[in-house]
């Protein structure tokens, strides 16, 4: 489903070059639950940006469902993000001025979906995370765990092929963190491909495969 071939990413800030990824090759199959682990500065966020089509590699190839996307335009990447990828961020990244319902609805609006189908999908996603009764609340009126569940609902509403989670439990206490991880495991059981990025081994253990990276290179790969 996803395949990286010798992907590098170099950041230029002025005259200084920084190699965040030094040649990563990686394959993720449909239905997998993969954790990418590494300390801060290891390049895992850069990897997540490239996997999530938020950024393009400096060199190398990235096949998303068999299509090479590293030369795609901004708009083509936006379309992939919109239709095929669901994001779950450490900081939830909900829009504060919108209520739960509107936040979940937003990616579908950018897809220009008609009202009836939108409504049905948003409800289904909110029921899945158990927040249908909170649909009128603004993010600031919700707990951290609830906010992350709204974010998961937003990722699910678009019915994506891939769910990318960047430290989804990083801002949660351990109890709600476990809850969120359980939801993700359930999603994987239902057949969704999940890539989880974390620095926490306990979190990574939820995944079936753990890839460790350090200084922009894969150093270890093992299966649970």
């Amino acid at each position: 489903m996803l395949e990286l071939k010798y992907v590098t990413k170099v950041y230029n800030s002025g005259s200084i070059q920084f190699k965040a990824l030094k040649g990563i090759s990686l394959k993720v199959d449909r239905g997998e639950f993969v954790a990418v682990m590494g300390p801060s500065g290891s390049g895992k966020s850069t990897l997540m940006n490239i996997l999530g089509c938020l950024d393009v590699p400096t060199s190398g190839e990235y096949f998303f469902e068999g299509i090479e996307v590293s030369n795609f335009t901004d708009n083509q990447l936006a379309e992939i993000r919109n239709k095929k990828i669901g994001f779950i961020f450490q900081k939830f990244n909900l829009l504060p001025q919108m209520n739960t319902y509107e936040n979940v609805e937003l990616p579908l609006l950018y897809r220009r979906m008609d009202t009836a189908e939108r409504n049905q999908r948003v409800r289904k996603a909110l029921e899945q995370v158990g927040l249908i009764d909170w649909k009128e609340h603004k993010p600031t009126e919700l707990s951290g765990g609830q906010q992350q569940r709204v974010a998961i609902a937003r990722a699910l509403a678009g019915d994506p092929h891939l769910i990318l989670a960047d430290e989804p439990t990083g801002n949660l206490d351990s109890k709600t963190g476990t809850e969120v991880l359980k939801i993700m495991k359930d999603l994987n059981k239902n057949g969704r491909t999940i890539v989880l990025i974390t620095h926490d081994l306990n979190v990574a253990k939820s995944a079936k495969r753990i890839i460790s990276i350090k200084d922009g290179l894969i150093v270890e790969e093992r299966r649970n």
């Binding site: 999530g52 708009n75 936006a78 379309e79 993000r81 994001f87 990244n93 829009l95 937003l106 950018y110």
Partner: peptide, 16 residues
């Protein structure tokens, strides 16, 4: 800026 980033991440195009 952050709001724009979120919107773009979930699929807003330049035009949107």
């Amino acid at each position: 800026t952050r709001e724009i980033g979120i919107r773009k991440a979930i699929g807003a195009k330049r035009k949107d």
